[in-house]
C-alpha cells in the first residue's frame, strides 16, 4: 500500500510535467485575451518533429531544434491569423489542430511506410533520470522527487520564473491589462498585438518543452495523436484556475494526478476494464468544471439568493 502511494506520487510528478509546461505557457496567451486551442497542435507538432528530425539526422540536438522551430511556426501561423487578421480564434485553433493531426500520418505514410508510429529509440536514450543522493533519505518526498528527468526539474524553475514575470514585470502587467480590456490597453499606448505575439512565443517554447518531455524522456518514439488531448486538458486547467499561473498549475497537477491514478489502477485490473479507465481524465475535467463553475455561478447569477 505504501509502495502504491509512493509510486502514485512519483508518477503524478512525472506525468504532470508536460501538462505543467503547456499550462504555464498557455496562461500568458489566454490571459492576453486569445483562446488558444492550438496548444494541442503545438504539443503534437513538437512530439512529431522532435522524433522526425532525430531520425533524419541521427542527432538529438536537431530533434530539439526541430521541436522548438515547429512549435514557433505553429504559433506563428496562429498569431498571423488571429492577431494580425483578427480571425475567430476558436475556428483557427481547431483548424490548426486538424491540420496537425493530418500532417504527421501523411508524412509518415509517405516516407516511413507506417501511418501511426515512428521509432527513434536507437537515437534517444529515454533513461535520463537524475539520482540525487541526499533526497532518498526524506520519507515520502524522496521517492516522489528523486529519479525524475531533467525537464521535470526544469518545469518548476520555469513556473517560478514565469510567475515572477507575470506578476512583477512590466510585460506581465501589460499581458493582464490586454486581456482585461483591449481597448483601454491600446488607449494608454500598449501595443497589444506585440504583447500577444510575445505571449504566443512564450507559449510556443513551453509547448516545445512539453512535447520534448513526452518523446525524449518518456516514450522515445512518436505515435499517432500522442498528445492525447493534453493541450485541451491544459486549457481546462487554465480556465479552472481563472487564468492565474500558480492556480492553473495546481489544476494541471490535479489532472496529472488523475492520469497517474489511471495508470496505476490499470496495472491491477483486467485489460477490458483499463479501457473504461481511459475516460477518467476527461471525466475528471467535466467534474472539476462543474465544481469550479458552480462557485462562480453562485457568486454572479445566483446572487439574489443572498441579498436579504
Amino acid at each position: 500500500m505504501f509502495d502504491f502511494i509512493e509510486n502514485l506520487l512519483y508518477y503524478t510528478v512525472k506525468l504532470s510535467t508536460p501538462l505543467l509546461f503547456c499550462t504555464i505557457g498557455g496562461v500568458f496567451v489566454q490571459r492576453a485575451g486569445t483562446m488558444n486551442f492550438a496548444l494541442e497542435a503545438a504539443i503534437n507538432t513538437s512530439c512529431f518533429f522532435s522524433v522526425l528530425f532525430t531520425v533524419i539526422t541521427g542527432n538529438t540536438f536537431w530533434g530539439i531544434v526541430g521541436a522548438f522551430l515547429s512549435c514557433i511556426i505553429i504559433n506563428a501561423i496562429f498569431g498571423t491569423f488571429v492577431v494580425r487578421f483578427k480571425a475567430n480564434a476558436v475556428l483557427i485553433g481547431l483548424a490548426i489542430n486538424m491540420l496537425m493531426t493530418a500532417v504527421p500520418p501523411y508524412l509518415l505514410q509517405a516516407f516511413f511506410d507506417s501511418r501511426g508510429l515512428l521509432m527513434a529509440t536507437d537515437f534517444i536514450d529515454v533513461n535520463k533520470a537524475i539520482n540525487i543522493p541526499f533526497l532518498d533519505k526524506i520519507p515520502i518526498l524522496g521517492p516522489m522527487l528523486n529519479n525524475q528527468t531533467p525537464l521535470t526539474y526544469l518545469v518548476y524553475l520555469v513556473i517560478i520564473i514565469l510567475t515572477i514575470v507575470y506578476y512583477k514585470t512590466k510585460f506581465g502587467v501589460y499581458v493582464q491589462v490586454t486581456g482585461e480590456n483591449q481597448q483601454s490597453a491600446e488607449a494608454v499606448g500598449i501595443n497589444t498585438d506585440k504583447i500577444k505575439w510575445i505571449a504566443l512565443m512564450i507559449s510556443a517554447c513551453c509547448c516545445a518543452l512539453s512535447g520534448l518531455n513526452l518523446t525524449f524522456e518518456q516514450t522515445g518514439s512518436y505515435s499517432l495523436n500522442m498528445s492525447a488531448a493534453r493541450g485541451l486538458i491544459c486549457l481546462a486547467a487554465i480556465n479552472c484556475g481563472s487564468r492565474r499561473p500558480v492556480k492553473s498549475c495546481l489544476y494541471a497537477l490535479i489532472f496529472g494526478f488523475v492520469r497517474a491514478l489511471q495508470l496505476m489502477l490499470s496495472s491491477f485490473v483486467s485489460p477490458n476494464i483499463t479501457l473504461i479507465l481511459e475516460i477518467i481524465p476527461y471525466l475528471t475535467i467535466i467534474i472539476v468544471f462543474i465544481i469550479t463553475e458552480t462557485s462562480v455561478a453562485r457568486k454572479t447569477t445566483m446572487r439574489f439568493f443572498r441579498e436579504e
Partner: peptide, 9 residues
C-alpha cells in the same frame, strides 16, 4: 446552468 466553456466540455 453553469456557463461552462462549450468547446472544452
Amino acid at each position: 446552468l453553469l456557463n461552462v466553456n462549450v468547446v472544452v466540455s
